[in-house]
């Protein structure tokens, strides 16, 4: 799996988990203008975090490799 595809799946799974995991309370009538700010903040946070991970991925990998210098074949 390429890095880009992996990134896509992480975002997709995060969106799905957030969608079903944080059910807001709403009753009896569909309100088209409804806003779940917790949900929105979470989505933005998760996607922002993933983007940050993507941007610094090379540095993260380098950092991990430095932690375990002898493990490489």
């Amino acid at each position: 799996m390429s890095m880009r595809r992996g990134f896509f799946w992480i975002i997709a799974i995060a969106v799905f988990v957030c969608s079903v995991g944080f059910v807001r309370t709403a009753y009896a009538y569909i309100d088209p203008g409804t806003g779940s700010y917790i949900f929105q903040i979470l989505i933005v946070g998760v996607i922002g975090g993933l983007c940050a991970v993507k941007i610094f991925w090379a540095k993260i990998v380098l950092f991990v490799k430095r932690l375990f210098p002898g493990k490489r074949p």
């Binding site: 569909i30 309100d31 088209p32 203008g33 409804t34 929105q40 989505i43």
Partner: peptide
């Protein structure tokens, strides 16, 4: 769609 809906919030109302 997800952050700034441009329809007013309201229920028991028609579109």
């Amino acid at each position: 769609g997800f952050v700034f809906p441009i329809v007013n919030s309201g229920a028991m109302l028609t579109l």
